[in-house]
Every structure is written in C-alpha cells, then in structure tokens.
C-alpha cells in the first residue's frame, strides 16, 4: 500500500479518503509511547509498537476490532503478553462507511439521500427508469444505477451487513416485491419499505404469496419510518433515519426526551 518512507499519517489519510478499512494502533502508555502500527485487512502492517511480539498480537486484535468498527484501549506485556499491563495501546478503527441503497427515484429519495450523507452513508440510488434515475436529480448520491432493484441486489447483496440499510421507496408492487425478497436474502441490518397503510396491506399479501415468512416480515420496517407526523420529503427522511438509529441502539419506542429518564447518551 506504500513504501516505508511515507509518513504513516499520509498512508492513513489516503486510506480513509478512499473509504478503505484501516486501523491505527498507538502506544499511549509504557515504553515507546506514541509508537504506531497501521493495520489494514489486505496488506502488511506499517510501523512498529516496539517489539515484534507486541506487533503480532496487536495486529491480530486490531483486525478483530476493525471488522466490528470498534475503537478502544487494550493492555499488553512488552512482548504482547496477555494479562499484563506494561503497555497500553489505543486502537482506532476506521471502518468503511455503511451503505444505504435507496430504491425508487422520487422526491423522497433526494431528501433521504441528503440526510443519509450527513450521517456518513455511502448512498446508492437505483431505479429501472432511466429518465428518473439520473445524477442530475441525485447529485448527493455516490452512485446512481439504472436497473431493477433485484438485479442490483444480486450484484452487491453479498457486501451488505448489519450496519447497512435498504430503503424501498418505489411503492409499486412490480418493483417492491422482488426488491424486498432479494433484500431479505442478504444480511442487511435495516429494510424499510414506503407506502400507505393500504399499500402496505396489499404488498404484504403479495410478499406472503412470494414466500416471505414471519421471520422475514419481522425484519421489514413497513410502512417505513417513525411516527413523527412527518409530511414533507425532508421530514420523512428524518423519520426514516431516526428509525435506523433507534433500531441500532435498541430503542424502538422513542418518546420525547421530556417524557423519559435515564442516560441521554447510550454506552
């Protein structure tokens, strides 16, 4: 990824900008305070924390932390021994950004794309109709794809995980049903589907016919979003993103902070 004379910061900044997963381990206490090891899943680590033994053990731990996007302090012996505290290492993970796939090139899509970008998502807009799915209409999107949602999911479904989101905004059964069944076949963390109560009932019937079982329905957020009374595309986008956050934090029944107690920031 780079030769040994390039400063670690330069390599780190390039990887973060390229949205490649990378982690930085820094000795914050002990011999060689400030020493660093830069770790990526696919190439050799750069730098050293002081000893080969420590580098080897930390590299292994860092790859685990990076896979789950965690950052924090770990303690080791000078040669990487477990259950010793001679060296404290801060591991900072820069995971690739989460993905949001938005199906349907409508006004709600543009608003949702903007809010998703604020939250750090890599946004893909997909619609089978070429006159609607254009980069001019969705300048905030990282990618605009003219195709059927199910075909895009066949291509990229493998890459979706718990941090990612699929939002189906087409509310047209012809597109929705295959999009949803294919999204359910992935490990994506959030699947939200737009539509009125009536659209939802009708679509649920068709999904049932397409073989979606109770566990599948349990994963679907349909109709999409929290009950905020949102009207405009922008308000609806906030209600969808708020639902995604609440699902991640396990707070599925949001009330006004005024009406709750307990910690505002979750551990």
């Amino acid at each position: 990824m780079s030769d040994e004379t390039t400063p670690l910061y330069t390599v780190l900044a390039a990887a973060i900008r390229a949205e490649e997963p990378v982690a930085l381990a820094t000795v914050i206490e002990g011999p060689n305070t400030g020493a660093k090891l830069l770790v990526t899943p696919d190439s050799d680590s750069l730098g050293t924390l002081g000893t080969a033994g420590l580098d080897r053990v930390v590299e292994r731990d860092v790859l685990g932390e990076l896979a789950s996007g965690r950052s924090g302090i770990r303690h080791y012996g000078e040669n990487g021994e477990a259950r010793e505290e001679a060296v404290s290492v801060f591991i900072e993970s820069f995971a690739a950004p989460p993905q949001m796939l938005i199906f349907g090139a409508v006004d709600f899509t543009a608003a949702l794309g903007r809010v998703a970008k604020i939250l750090g998502y890599r946004v893909t807009v997909c619609d089978a109709r070429p006159i609607f799915a254009t980069t001019q209409r969705f300048p905030m999107a990282d990618q605009v794809v003219v195709d059927w949602p199910n075909r895009l999911l066949e291509d990229v479904g493998e890459s979706l995980g718990p941090r990612d989101a699929v939002c189906v905004l087409t509310h047209d059964n012809k597109f929705d049903v295959p999009a949803i069944t294919h999204a359910l076949a992935t490990k994506v963390g959030y699947i939200g589907v737009m539509g009125s109560r009536r659209t939802h009932e009708n679509r649920s019937k068709r999904l049932r016919e397409a073989g979606v079982d109770d566990a599948g329905f349990e994963r679907l957020r349909s109709p999409i979003g929290l009950d905020l009374g949102a009207r405009t595309p922008e308000e609806t986008a906030i209600s969808i993103c708020a639902e995604i956050i609440a699902l991640r934090t396990g707070r599925t029944a949001p009330k006004p902070l005024r009406d709750t107690d307990g910690a505002i920031h979750q551990e």
Binding site: S71, G72, I73, F90, E92, S93, A263, I264, H265
Partner: peptide
C-alpha cells in the same frame, strides 16, 4: 459514564 463523543 455519560459523554457525547465516543473514543476516536
């Protein structure tokens, strides 16, 4: 305890 910004 409570704090607005996470490690990193």
């Amino acid at each position: 305890g409570s704090g607005p910004r996470l490690p990193g």
